[in-house]
Design a protein around this nucleic acid. Structure first.
Lengths: 206, 206
DNA sequence: TTCTGTGAATAGGTTCACAGCT
DNA sequence: AGCTGTGAACCTATTCACAGAA
């Protein structure tokens, strides 16, 4: 497949969200202009994004809401649910493990690990925090391709190495470090302090 | 000032982090190549990013670590600390309010609001959750220009309107919606389910 | 007539490559 | 010799604009 840009993928995910809303409101079709309005972009952008994957619309009419939603779920790999392991049972990890938005979108946190004996054994929403020592053997029993890393910066690379070694193919990283991974593993780093700093920059430069 | 791209600003924030590490390790100077290595980019990119703001290096030598760090703090508006109000005292809001990474970078959560009577009055790390009703009067007493919004999607726009009305100029939004704000207000939306979806896309398209 | 699909034009961001300090 | 600063070249993403299907 032609290389799809990350911004296109992010927008597809937004479009899907709006399609689902339209679906519950009983709308049959939606135009690129309407999707654009809701997603904060332009109608040309919407059509271009979709055109990378085929032509799903009807000229003069727009897109069939349920058909496009189905197609986007397919494209985004959301037709099946995904098991996710979480490493790090701090406050953020705990909050994320229980975040309803993940489950709603088909991401199911199946295990949470930590190395701190004080945390191991505690419960987060029915999930018992497990000793990180069991990571490899657990993943052998239940291969999982997505992990969320919520450990301190200085522990992150080691954790990621172990996850990669154990076959994880995609990592959502909340530790504020640049991670090294093999080319066939996808990493997305979310750095919340950095987000605030970009806001601070905007405030400072006006 | 010339328009600076968001990606440049994000990288500046990374560079600063590495400079601070180098500083504690007692390094006097650092080259663009070294900064690039640590930030996962190229030396030309580092030099280009910095060049938008002036020329801080010495040819043949590199950059003075403390001088560049100081300059970046200035550029990013981090010479002073920032008060931040948080709206939404759910699990994620609570975790963020206590996130040490914010305080370390000079962002100080000064108040946290919710509308749920069950949450109002509870303590998060010494901070008492206040009734959202007090938002406007509190902000009049203590003008604050950064807010973090961690409320359900359907409440976010209303909260943001009130924040903007009360003078907030920058918003870090964790609600999965596209927010409408006046042009002089900066919004950064972090959508964690969307991040997982981009990973799911990568997994599905290989 | 309306709204899609898509080449072409434009804008924006990244990399190259080299002149110029130190 | 080493490394910065920067115009130019390149590449990627967005917007334009219009032909064509419903």
């Amino acid at each position: 497949m032609r290389k799809i840009s990350e911004s296109t993928v992010r927008r597809l995910s937004l479009y899907l969200r709006y399609l689902e809303q339209s679906e519950t409101q009983g709308h049959e079709t939606i135009s690129s202009a309407e999707l654009a309005r809701r997603g904060g972009t332009t109608s040309a952008q919407v059509r271009k994004d979709l055109s990378f994957f085929g032509s799903f619309g009807k000229r003069g009419l727009g897109y069939s809401v349920p058909a496009l939603a189905t197609r986007l779920r397919e494209i985004l790999g959301l037709k099946r649910s995904h098991r996710v392991v979480m490493v790090g049972a701090g406050r953020i990890g705990g909050a994320l493990a229980q975040y309803p938005g993940f489950r709603q979108r088909g991401f199911h946190v199946s295990a949470i690990y930590d190395r701190d004996p004080k945390k191991i054994g505690s419960r987060w929403n029915g999930l018992v925090v497990r000793d990180i020592r069991h990571l490899e053997s657990d993943l052998r029993k239940e291969p999982t391709d997505i992990a969320i890393v919520v450990v301190p910066a200085d522990a992150a690379q080691e954790v990621v190495d172990r996850l990669v070694q154990a076959g994880v193919k995609a990592i959502l990283n909340f530790a504020p470090v640049q991670l090294a991974v093999p080319r066939d593993v996808a990493v997305k780093t979310v750095n919340m302090a950095q987000e605030l700093e970009t806001l601070s920059f905007v405030l400072a430069n006006r």
